[in-house]
Write a protein that binds this DNA or RNA. Sequence first.
DNA 1: CTCTTGAATAAGTCATATCTATTTCGCACA
DNA 2: TGTGCGAAATAGATATGACTTATTCAAGAG
Lengths: 243, 243
Amino acid sequence: MDAADGGGTGLHAGVLDRLGALVAGGGLAPGTVLRADELVERYGVSRTVVREAVRVLESMGLVQSRRRVGTTVAPRERWNVHDPRVIRWRLDGPDRDDQLRSLSELRRGVEPVAAVLAASRATPEQCGELVGAVMDMAVHGRSGDFEAYLEADVRFHRTLLAASGNEMLAALDGVVAEVLAGRTRHHLMPARPEPAAIRLHGDVADAVRSGDAGAAEAAMRAILAEATAAMADVVGADPDPRT
Amino acid sequence: MDAADGGGTGLHAGVLDRLGALVAGGGLAPGTVLRADELVERYGVSRTVVREAVRVLESMGLVQSRRRVGTTVAPRERWNVHDPRVIRWRLDGPDRDDQLRSLSELRRGVEPVAAVLAASRATPEQCGELVGAVMDMAVHGRSGDFEAYLEADVRFHRTLLAASGNEMLAALDGVVAEVLAGRTRHHLMPARPEPAAIRLHGDVADAVRSGDAGAAEAAMRAILAEATAAMADVVGADPDPRT
DNA sequence: CTCTTGAATAAGTCATATCTATTTCGCACA
DNA sequence: TGTGCGAAATAGATATGACTTATTCAAGAG
């Protein structure tokens, strides 16, 4: 009655979210032990609720609960780093920059493939959605409305991932959205969106529509190369701009 | 007392594994409702255990439990398709071929990036491990020992992913291992491993060692192109061999 | 025919009792 | 003093009963 929400609905979701953010955010060093009644007291809920939250955290690999010992915080290597909630918790914590770099690199691999696949699988509706998103990007880019520009950008990439016809790629839409939003929030965007970037998005849309997988991939790689270069200036990532 | 193991240790892990396999395997159509006491009876465990299992399944997006209604099987779009257990359950079910295709496509995006990153981040130990794995592939390829060849192949790719220095890529090692193993199990391998494939693996190792990101990526893409072509013959995937 | 209201229902939550695995410590024996 | 076996203590694992709350559905009023 005093540790209500925080995530979804129900008490357990609240505890899950708070504990998860604490662990995934690095607030507790690996090896730290938490006893059940300690958590009961800290969050003011019953054992049942704590157990359920701990079980879910265990299923994410964040903790491991052993008899007679308690639930111990697991080392990072065991974490399900692809779990959407783990990603969100880490983005909210001190790992934010590292996490964004990891996600950017993942995106650099995923999106070109999505472009290739979309070229042979995108539906007419999806092609239209892509073109529409590019148009919105152009409009809001010119007017300098960052929020609207970002929204259109996210819509473009989300649609492309969906058009790949591969659910495992499509499920990464949250990752892409997070990276794009993070870039805007960190002011890694130029004062006015590059016309070149918008043109490249248009190239991808055109290539997908005409079924030209090679062109779609090339244009998408160009988009990502630009993003990588812009990010390297600030986060000081690895000095390898590639081709 | 009668629905013991199945996954990890503990009753809840057993129920989780059985129920998860049932849902993720497609045994229950989306929208199907399961009531708590029904599960209690079916698996012969207490409500506590059922609750914990259902909570974990809910955290994977496989089901959603609502008051007064029961826990309903969620549509596939909500599933955490990147969760290792969901992947395993689907690989064990009728979706196996589709799942392998999705994983292969994901791999096709991820591994080239891993190669690029590894070229600038691999430690000397990792370079040595790569070279050693290639040598083992050559030896067992010549002797026709499929098991040992597969093992060396997995070791190579696993090491490369780890060498990328990106935990989100490294965490996909299970995916790659599953795809490679599936290919062997489905007899998609030529009677005798292609010397060309082994040479390409060697090229990747050399490029990574010398820090040549471009060459590493090119060789890795060649490996994947070959694998894609071989798979397309049997599973009848999309007719787009790309460049 | 529609809207409101209340009863039925099933999950959610809490509290408690019991079981069991595991650790730890002490005692015996070498 | 060192090794090993065993008993006791600990803390999670499981089971169960009682109670709460949200949701649905149907009956009745308008």
